[in-house]
Design a protein around this nucleic acid. Sequence first.
DNA 1: CGCGGTACTTACTTTTTAGTAGGTAGCGCA
DNA 2: TGCGCTACCTACTAAAAAGTAAGTACCGCG
Lengths: 107, 107
Amino acid sequence: MNLESVDTEQLSLKKTLDIVCGKWRLYIVYQLGTEARRYGELRRMIPEVSEKVLVQELKSLVELGMVEKTIYGEVPPRVEYSLTRKALEILPTLRKLTAIGEVFLEP
Amino acid sequence: MNLESVDTEQLSLKKTLDIVCGKWRLYIVYQLGTEARRYGELRRMIPEVSEKVLVQELKSLVELGMVEKTIYGEVPPRVEYSLTRKALEILPTLRKLTAIGEVFLEP
DNA sequence: CGCGGTACTTACTTTTTAGTAGGTAGCGCA
DNA sequence: TGCGCTACCTACTAAAAAGTAAGTACCGCG
């Protein structure tokens, strides 16, 4: 094991944590799935999350390269969010993450 | 309104996040691996983490059912930490998590 | 002319997490 | 007698994340 591979592994871990950590982040990704969703649509799908946090999380997901934002110059305004190619690539893995918690759920 | 009361999938997701989230949590689990490690040994393996946070994280991991703490009534004191059966069960999955971040590392 | 719907933004408070810098107690060793 | 080693604990501060509540701007409809 050389220094490069150690460094890459720690970088990958950090990036992984950026993607999965956050009370609502993964849940929003799950809701997006393979569809493009409008902002209001997402809001109604996850009414427990505040608008501030939803907007903030969507912005972070865009910055992380997980989500694409499309603004249609229409009136009334239309904004759609969808998972990027890379996000779709890891979506099956992300969906399997609940298996980790399942092992620890008390019966 | 909380996630806990909804369904098993959301409960599993919450538990998963408890296990993987935290700047040092997964890293400590990786370092433990299949071995039993003494407190001071872990401290030297991860010198970047402060003692306060290391103790705190180990306590959380014990509460989560991820780690077993064994105190040997010796002098000088000896305390060993090791992954539980359940933790060992999910360890391969936890190690594969870096694959998520790898997809997003800029080349 | 106000109402509801579009998609946000802003200011502020609370809660959680992480980091800094010290202290504790028992024992072996020089 | 004081130092280092064991495995912690405590008080405090700083930073990050999450929650609350309100405001913004535009438009069609009645």
